[in-house]
Simulated assay, not measured.
Amino acid sequence: MTDPAELRTERLVLSVPTADDVDAITEACQDEAVQRWTTVPSPYGRDAAENFVNAFVPAGWEAGTARTWAVRVRRPDAATELVGMVGLEGIRDGAGEIGYWLAPAGRGLGLMTEAVSAVLDYAFDPDHAALVRVQWRAYRGNRPSARVARLTGFRFEAVRRLGAMGRSGREDEWTAAILADDPRSPADEWPAETLTTTTT
């Protein structure tokens, strides 16, 4: 069993989502972009959020195969607001895959870049996940997600033609990865089609 870990950054607290987050998760997952670019159920009802926090998240931590954090913005009154989710899945043999989404209220502030950097610190720490490789995948066209990956050091690897299953059939997929000893700085040589000026 892997004990859930809380991660903190300058602006964020990353902690395990709980039953108290069900309403916020349900609302965020109605967003058109979350529906388009992620694999959350569609339509997304409260029961999906309940299953996520009560079954999927604890099972992943228990088995050590997935580690999921709610992305929470710190407020001046010491409270936090859930604005997204980030996690490592498919953890096996020193590798895993990162995934993330942001609610509209959290976009344009660099929050997910900050969150992913914290998760990579955890992923590569020998005292925590001790991974040697983290993979990123996205449907072709998801430039905001690609921006986060590029800024946090992921190296672009391929366009997999019809490599992913979307809601309406197969779609092209972008893939990238970062190794434990790679520089944690913005990576070069990403295709022009992946680039965007939007901050995420």
Rank of each mutant, 00 (worst) to 15 (best):
L151M: 14
E6C: 13
A78N: 07
S117M: 07
T194P: 01
R75N: 15
V134Y: 08
G106Q: 03
A164S: 05
G84Q: 07
P186N: 00
A176W: 03
T80I: 11
L111R: 11
R184G: 02
E10W: 03
L179G: 05
R161D: 00
D47K: 05
E173S: 10
V22P: 11
P41I: 06
P126Y: 00
P17I: 12
P144D: 13
I178F: 04
D172E: 06
A158L: 01
E89P: 06
G153D: 14
R92M: 03
D181F: 07
T197S: 13
R140P: 05
L14H: 05
S117I: 08
P183Y: 05
E50H: 09
F124Q: 06
S42K: 09
M1C: 06
A49L: 14
L14F: 01
I178S: 01
N142I: 13
A33S: 14
G60E: 04
R143Q: 12
A158V: 01
V16D: 00
M85F: 13
W190I: 10
V34N: 07
G96C: 07
R46T: 12
R67K: 04
C29K: 06
G106D: 07
A5V: 15
T152P: 09
Y139C: 09
T113Y: 05
G169V: 10
V148C: 02
F52E: 05
L120E: 08
D20K: 09
A130L: 02
G110L: 08
E32I: 15
P183Q: 06
R161C: 02
N54R: 14
A192N: 06
P186R: 06
R11F: 03
E114D: 07
P4I: 10
R72M: 01
A63L: 12
G108E: 14
L102W: 05
E193P: 09
A28L: 13
G163K: 01
Y44D: 12
A19L: 11
L179D: 03
A115N: 11
W61T: 01
E171N: 10
A70E: 10
D21I: 03
V132H: 14
L195R: 10
P41T: 07
W190L: 08
R167K: 12
P58C: 12
P183A: 05
N54E: 10
R137A: 04
D188K: 03
A49C: 13
T175Q: 12
N54M: 04
V73W: 02
A115P: 07
T65Y: 05
E173D: 12
Y122E: 07
G141C: 08
G60S: 02
R161N: 01
A63Y: 01
A48Y: 11
S42G: 06
T200C: 07
N51I: 06
P41Y: 12
R46P: 11
E62C: 02
A95M: 12
V73E: 04
A158S: 12
G169H: 15
R107L: 09
P41W: 11
A48E: 15
R75T: 15
R150D: 12
I91H: 06
A49R: 14
A95E: 14
L102M: 14
A129W: 11
R140C: 05
D23C: 08
T2H: 02
T9D: 08
V148H: 01
G87Q: 11
A79V: 01
A115F: 03
A164P: 03
D127Q: 09
D172W: 13
M112D: 10
G90A: 10
T196G: 05
